[in-house]
């Protein structure tokens, strides 16, 4: 049943995101084509500049729009009128919820892939590839590559953290009888501050256990500390996501309150 639910959610998301992806890729192709001719026709430089700015905005808006479609789908299919159809399907609540979590991950992955592809189409050339290789070699020699990779993984998990925090606060807010949106926002703030308090305690404990980092002259000591710190923070993110899933499941299973 999970596959069937995913099929319909993928169709819903595809209708909204595929046009965006095509616009991104089309803009990237246009930038590349203009780039090929701007040495010959100098007036094209203006269009190149404008299109580059528009392309950057498109990437940012596209990312936000992708998150927005996931949130909208979550609310509409589980807590608005469509919920009368969704919650009476012969599927488990856990499958209904898992579908949304998986879709958030899938749409994120696809959007990132399209963005990377679009940037490559627009700008990639041998000079940039050589430059990137040089930077990676330098970072590796300095011992910064590992914490940087960990940090990038952490950023990915941060996205999931915030998406699932929003899902959870919606699950709680929409279980109330009135002011569902206000309650959802309030619970998002409450949960956010609880999580940040836990993170601060973690940071405090780690700093207390490694006071030598504050006075270290050797960058390797600091880098090693940061790597372990980020790794620990990543574990917390995974735990938070698990807790968010449990709370959302509990609210949907025992406190569903469709209008």
């Amino acid at each position: 049943m999970l596959g069937k639910l995913l099929k319909y959610d993928i169709k819903w998301q595809a209708k909204r995101l595929v046009p965006l992806y095509l616009i991104m890729l089309g803009s990237a192709a246009a930038i590349r084509i203009i780039d090929l001719f701007r040495d010959t026709f100098s007036f094209l430089n203006i269009f190149y500049g404008l299109l580059t700015v528009a392309f950057i905005f498109l990437i940012i808006i596209g990312f936000i729009y992708m998150a927005f479609t996931n949130i909208k789908r979550y609310i509409d299919s589980l807590f608005k009128d469509e919920g009368y159809l969704t919650h009476t399907l012969p599927v488990t609540k856990s499958n209904l919820l898992l579908t949304k979590f998986i879709m958030a991950a899938l749409t994120f992955a696809f959007t990132i892939i399209v963005i990377i592809l679009a940037i490559s189409i627009a700008y990639m050339n041998s000079n940039i590839i050589d430059g990137l290789n040089y930077i990676l070699d330098y970072l590796s020699m300095q011992g910064i590559l590992k914490p940087l990779i960990l940090f990038m993984i952490l950023m990915i998990f941060e996205y999931f953290f915030y998406m699932f925090l929003i899902f959870t606060s919606i699950s709680i807010g929409y279980s109330k009888n009135g002011n569902k949106n206000v309650n959802s926002v309030l619970w998002a703030i409450v949960i956010y501050f609880i999580v940040q308090a836990i993170n601060l305690i973690y940071m405090g404990i780690i700093s207390f256990m490694h006071p030598e980092v504050l006075t270290a002259n050797n960058p390797a000591v600091v880098i090693d500390f940061l790597s372990n710190f980020v790794l620990g923070y990543l574990v917390f993110e995974i735990i938070y996501i698990g807790v968010f899933y449990y709370i959302s499941y509990n609210r949907m299973n025992k406190h569903l309150n469709l209008p």
Binding site: D81, E82, L89, P90
Partner: peptide, 17 residues
């Protein structure tokens, strides 16, 4: 899940949105 397999429900509101 089992009860939903045997119940066919028409809500009072428009739910095919």
């Amino acid at each position: 899940v089992e009860s939903k397999k045997v119940i066919s429900y028409l809500p009072e509101r428009t739910y095919l949105t």
